Amino acid sequence: MRNVMRHTWSTPSSCFLFLFIMFLLVSTAVRPVQAKETLVWSVIDFPPFQILDGTYAASGSFDGELQTLIDNMPDFDHKITRMSFARRKQEFLRGTNICTPGIFLAPAKELNLAISKPALTHLDNRIIFLKNKAALFGRENPIVLEALFKRKDLVGGIMAGRSYAPNIDPVIQRYKDSPNLVIRTLTGDQLFQMMQNGDLDYLIMFSHEAAFQNIRMGLNDMPLNRSIAGTPPYLYTYVACTGNDWGRSVIKKVNTVLDRERAKKSYQQFSERWYPQEDRKKVRRYYPHMLKE
């Protein structure tokens, strides 16, 4: 009987059948892992919105929001790429498939991006200056930006490629060639240091942005600030992706996450990060308006 079985199994047709069955078993058991699509996030060192370096790294408002999106979009292989404002704009203009966790509405529309629902709430931009320069600004509050840019006795600092607000950006554009405006591709802390050194008389920044720089540099005197005429008391930032079919499909998924997360207290705290207590109260007052949009 053993000889018969050995002989039967050794025939070519039986061997082929055995190998075919083994192939089916192996191919069924070992399925290839489907590769995830890579989602590139453009991040900018923009404290305290996005903090990429130092003791306070990853504690910005965009940092918390981005981590929430990553945690809730597991179908993607998320890649974080550091860029300047100028490079991010160039990549969007080239049509590179990227997304950004934080951008204001005006520049996003200008670049024809796929734009999410409002993602975070922020207070307005301010004119920031040191106490020893206070006399130069008199009692004007709010400050009319165009009149400020016309003054020849004051030098202001502007971050190149950054969008400030719909009523601020056009004025900067009109006066961009003024010798009294220093417009450079620098980080906020570099501009703040130039003001501390006396190279600049004022900056345009958010109040908590200036406060953060002051804390990070270990300075005692908090800089002063004045409102800018025509600037709304609060504004939103948005998640945006390249304005093509790919970007629009990603934004649909982003909006699904925002619908689920924005009303949570843990998410709202991203908008409140780094503001002094009084300003946090203002953010809390304005935040519910965002949930209606």
Rank of each mutant, 00 (worst) to 15 (best):
S10H: 10
R248Q: 11
P233E: 09
T8Y: 13
W41Y: 05
R174L: 14
D189V: 01
S14C: 09
I98T: 07
K265G: 13
D169G: 11
A57H: 09
N132Q: 09
I70Q: 09
S266Y: 13
E140M: 13
T256R: 02
R260I: 04
A229Q: 11
E209C: 00
A108R: 04
L224M: 09
H78G: 05
D153G: 07
A160G: 09
Q268R: 03
K133N: 10
V171W: 12
P12G: 03
L17N: 09
T121P: 00
G188T: 01
L154A: 11
A108P: 07
P288G: 04
L25A: 15
A147F: 04
V43H: 06
A165G: 13
M159S: 13
R88N: 15
G247T: 14
I115A: 06
Q34E: 14
R88E: 15
P12W: 04
R6E: 13
L66V: 08
R285F: 02
G64H: 03
L186C: 02
R284P: 00
Q196K: 10
K265N: 11
Q277D: 15
A135C: 02
G64N: 03
N141V: 00
L111F: 08
N167T: 14
I115D: 09
V182D: 14
V250N: 11
L145R: 01
V40E: 08
H122S: 08
W274M: 12
A240D: 03
L123D: 03
K176T: 11
L224D: 02
A29E: 06
L111Y: 10
G198Y: 06
S271V: 06
Q190T: 10
D53N: 15
P142H: 05
D77F: 01
K282M: 05
N72E: 10
D63F: 14
F137H: 00
F76C: 15
P48Y: 01
Y164R: 03
W41C: 04
D71M: 02
G64K: 00
K79C: 03
R126A: 11
R226A: 05
P276N: 12
N180F: 11
Q193F: 00
E91P: 03
H289D: 13
D177P: 04
A147G: 05
V26M: 08
C241K: 04
F129T: 01
P276E: 13
C241I: 12
H122W: 05
T28H: 12
S42A: 13
T55P: 10
Q193K: 08
M159R: 12
D201K: 02
F49L: 15
M22R: 08
K89Y: 09
S42K: 03
A114S: 15
S84L: 06
S10Y: 02
K265D: 15
I158R: 06
L17V: 15
Y238A: 05
V4A: 09
Q90M: 10
S178M: 05
T242V: 08
A263L: 10
R162Y: 14
